[in-house]
Design a protein around this nucleic acid. Structure first.
Lengths: 153, 153
DNA sequence: CACAATTAGTTGCGCACGCAACCGTTACGG
DNA sequence: CCGTAACGGTTGCGTGCGCAACTAATTGTG
């Protein structure tokens, strides 16, 4: 029906970087989030909050938002859920009463201690499909793109 | 406060592949979607439908869903929006009256012809930040992961 | 040939998200 | 100091999403 003009480059979605990158990110994310969803009942924002709070004692929602690059409302809601489940607790900071110090509860620390090794193992198992050289190449490319886009490490 | 057990590996979210990959995918997607959003008023699902229909005359929603890997409802809604804007049109297929053949209208073809070169140029400009070697490495790593996760090319 | 199973596509619903507006607190400038 | 700007955090609202249920058409099976 339509004549394809040779000078007009075809756009193959399957070879289009944003599309492929998004598909891969979703795939990888699902592969890992299966674990913290099914075994620990955490969704991605909650998992990120747990990971951040667990490795840094006493941090604010502000700090979590910056370091996870999530929108502050997303952080706020994730924190609220985790507090309902008694995995974290909040205390108004004495120094600045706008802030609220976020900490893991005993149950939260227990979950964190169980969670982290499992997740890291799952990541390791995924990355094992790449040769050392391929992993190096992948990370190098990602870093350059991150820098170009101003996604500070 | 808490004693860090040496055998317990720290999880640094910034070095955690799913997180980084997701952040990068969002960044790259935004970098490119700025164009089709601001200059053409398309969101990502709409853009994907345009790209698919434009390079393949006469296809069904089914085919679009498979080839873009979007949920069929997302495709259905994107098609509905594009039809409202008279960029695509649908005709019930004679062979199978459940199907509806999706085609670009004249206006749709005009937009497609204008859109594709701009988007490809923008992609090229982004990829230019990578050395030939880095691009090769990035793609190789992505392909291996895609295969491992069963995200058929 | 009838009836169940399947398929193409749409729609109702609940949910998570980001934006903007907001509250309470702290920092700043005249 | 007082008033205004800035900041930490929460909430109301509109939107887009996927699931499940649905309609309509087709295929398969006895």
């Amino acid at each position: 029906m339509s004549l394809r003009v040779p000078s007009e480059p075809a756009l193959e979605l399957a070879a289009f970087l944003p599309y492929r990158l998004n598909r891969l990110a979703v795939g990888v994310s699902n592969h890992l989030s299966d674990i913290y969803r099914e075994r620990f009942g955490l969704d991605v924002p909650e998992w990120r909050v747990m990971a951040t709070v667990g490795s840094r004692h006493g941090c604010t929602a502000q700090h979590i938002a910056e370091s996870t690059r999530m929108h502050k409302t997303r952080v706020s809601r994730a924190i609220a859920h985790l507090e309902e489940r008694d995995l974290i607790e909040r205390a108004s900071s004495a120094a600045d009463r706008r802030e609220r110090e976020v900490r893991l509860t005993k149950a939260g620390r227990r979950m964190y201690a169980e969670l982290v090794p499992v997740v890291l193992e799952r990541e390791r198992e995924l990355l094992a499909c790449l040769s050392r050289e391929q992993l190096r190449g992948l990370l190098a490319g990602m870093e350059t793109l991150e820098r170009f886009l101003g996604l500070g490490d």
